[in-house]
Simulated assay, not measured.
Amino acid sequence: MDEKHPPASRGSTEIAQRIRAARSRAGLSRKQLAAASGASERYLATLEAGSGNPSVDMVMAIAEALNVPMAELLPLGGEQDLVVSQAAAQLRRLPPDRVREALAWLGKPGQGGGDKAQRIALVGLRGAGKTSLGKALAERVNMPFFEVSKEIEKRYGGAISLLMEINGPAALQRYEAKVLEDILGANVRAVIAAPGAIVSAGPLYDRLLAMSWTVWLEASPEDHMNRVVAQGDLRPMAGNRTAMNDLRSILAAREADYARADIRINTSAQDFAATLDVLEQAVASLV
Results as ranks from 00 to 15, higher is better:
5 H>I: 11
6 P>R: 13
6 P>L: 08
9 S>V: 09
17 Q>P: 07
18 R>Y: 00
25 R>K: 06
26 A>S: 11
31 K>D: 03
38 G>W: 00
44 L>F: 04
46 T>Y: 02
46 T>Q: 05
47 L>Y: 11
49 A>N: 13
50 G>V: 11
53 N>W: 08
57 D>E: 14
60 M>I: 14
64 E>A: 13
65 A>T: 03
67 N>Y: 09
67 N>M: 14
69 P>Y: 01
71 A>Q: 09
76 L>F: 08
77 G>Q: 04
77 G>N: 05
77 G>D: 07
78 G>E: 01
84 V>E: 13
85 S>D: 11
88 A>Y: 04
90 Q>F: 02
90 Q>E: 06
91 L>I: 04
97 D>G: 03
103 L>G: 04
104 A>V: 11
104 A>R: 05
105 W>I: 01
105 W>P: 05
111 Q>E: 09
117 A>G: 06
121 A>V: 09
124 G>N: 10
126 R>M: 15
127 G>L: 09
129 G>T: 15
136 A>R: 01
137 L>G: 05
140 R>C: 02
141 V>F: 07
142 N>C: 09
143 M>G: 05
146 F>C: 06
147 E>L: 03
149 S>K: 13
150 K>T: 15
155 R>W: 00
157 G>R: 05
158 G>C: 07
161 S>R: 12
169 P>C: 02
171 A>L: 00
176 E>T: 01
182 D>E: 14
186 A>H: 04
187 N>G: 02
191 V>F: 07
194 A>M: 15
194 A>E: 06
195 P>E: 13
195 P>L: 08
196 G>K: 12
196 G>D: 07
202 G>H: 14
204 L>S: 13
204 L>H: 07
204 L>P: 07
207 R>H: 13
207 R>D: 14
209 L>D: 11
211 M>S: 11
213 W>S: 12
219 A>S: 13
219 A>W: 00
223 D>N: 07
223 D>G: 00
223 D>C: 01
227 R>C: 01
227 R>K: 01
233 D>P: 08
237 M>Q: 15
239 G>F: 01
239 G>C: 00
239 G>K: 10
239 G>Q: 09
243 A>G: 02
243 A>C: 02
244 M>V: 11
246 D>W: 03
247 L>N: 01
251 L>P: 00
257 D>Y: 12
258 Y>P: 12
259 A>N: 14
259 A>H: 12
260 R>K: 15
261 A>H: 10
263 I>S: 01
263 I>M: 03
264 R>M: 03
264 R>K: 11
268 S>R: 03
269 A>P: 05
269 A>V: 05
270 Q>N: 03
276 L>G: 07
286 L>G: 04
287 V>T: 09
287 V>G: 05
